[in-house]
């Protein structure tokens, strides 16, 4: 179903202007930037997509993966923003493109770039120890309300993704967001180790990252931030919505280009990635990596990003972290 609708979407967006506008083709290798070191989420996305595109022979020129780490992405964004007419430069993106500027560490935000396509998503998941008394998200939030000292760990800095996801959920459950005692660890793995050892009460992290631990049976998931239940190994985990907390949180990933990329080039990339998502190699890769297809074309992705910005801004404001 998902793939079918992706085709439909892609066709719809392509047909109208495509007839005369899609004749732009890359004339040299396309710089495909991961704004981080090798090994992280952005890097995996860049390397996987470029490998799939190459294996399937979809692009006219190579997509060359380039790592530009630093500043949580801000170094790369600044470089791309400076090169704002380059049609041969694209980069991987995800919620930090909105969060980092809101927190005041990047001068550039998503409006300084052209959204090309949203590709995949992951959700955030709330974990407790298997022996924990909390059975549901409401149990946990009620306990936090009674005792604000209860600590919830996450894998990123205060004010960034995991913290926002948790604070938003708490706020939806009726607790002041700033009241949640969020403890920042340097990765989801470290946070889960601390949960295993009983040093903290709960952990918020990406659902994909938690799969291994959940399979081990030492940890238990009490809520996932998806709109409806996930398929596969996490099918037993209830959503926030099921538990009466009207809250969803997407850890989406997509591709963007420089601000003044010409519309023909935008069409080209849109088409390229939508064709990529139809291939068997892509399906195989997403299965291995536990990614969920979440296609959006350039225009829809842009609107989505604006909504995300509003959502994050209100959470950050509630936390008092808006700068």
């Amino acid at each position: 179903m998902k793939t079918l609708s992706a085709v439909a979407l892609a066709c719809a967006t392509l047909l109208a202007p495509a007839l005369h506008a899609s004749d732009w083709k890359p004339t040299r290798a396309i710089e495909y930037i991961a704004p981080a070191n090798p090994g992280g989420g952005w890097d995996t996305l860049v390397r996987t997509t470029s490998a799939v595109i190459q294996a399937e022979g979809l692009a006219d020129r190579n997509l060359a993966p380039i790592n530009i780490p630093g500043g949580g992405g801000a170094v790369a964004w600044a470089q791309i923003a400076r090169d704002n007419r380059n049609d041969h430069k694209i980069f991987a993106t995800s919620p930090p493109i909105i969060l980092v500027p809101l927190a005041g560490t990047s001068r550039f935000n998503h409006q300084d770039f052209t959204p090309l396509a949203r590709l995949i998503t992951d959700y955030s998941i709330l974990l407790v120890h298997k022996d924990s008394p909390h059975q549901t998200a409401n149990d946990l939030f009620a306990a936090i309300k009674a005792n604000p000292r209860l600590s919830v760990g996450g894998g990123s800095a205060a004010g960034s993704m995991d913290h926002i996801s948790l604070a938003g959920a708490a706020s939806a459950a009726g607790i002041p967001a700033a009241q949640v005692n969020y403890i920042a660890f340097s990765g989801g793995g470290e946070a889960m180790t601390n949960l295993l050892g009983g040093h903290i009460e709960a952990v918020i992290t990406g659902a994909g990252e938690a799969q291994g631990q959940l399979a081990g049976g030492q940890l238990r998931a009490i809520a996932v931030s998806a709109p409806e239940r996930l398929q596969g190994p996490l099918a037993a985990v209830p959503t926030y919505r099921e538990q009466g907390i009207d809250y969803t949180f997407d850890i989406w990933r997509g591709v963007m280009g420089p601000k003044n990329m010409r519309p023909e080039a935008v069409r080209y990339y849109e088409q390229l990635f939508s064709r990529m998502m139809e291939t068997d190699s892509w399906r195989e890769a997403t299965e291995r990596l536990g990614w969920l297809d979440a296609w959006q074309d350039s225009a829809t992705f842009g609107e989505f990003l604006d909504q995300q910005q509003d959502q994050f801004r209100s959470v950050l404001a509630e936390l008092g972290l808006l700068r």
């Binding site: 793995g189 470290e190 180790t193 631990q213």
Partner: peptide
């Protein structure tokens, strides 16, 4: 445990998951 103790083992963990193996007690 299936938890990485360092940056390097974090990458190894990622690679194992990609290969369809879930490290941990099981």
């Amino acid at each position: 445990l299936g938890v990485p103790g360092s940056g390097t083992t974090a990458v190894l963990l990622g690679a194992l998951l990609v290969m369809g193996v879930t490290p941990g007690p099981m």
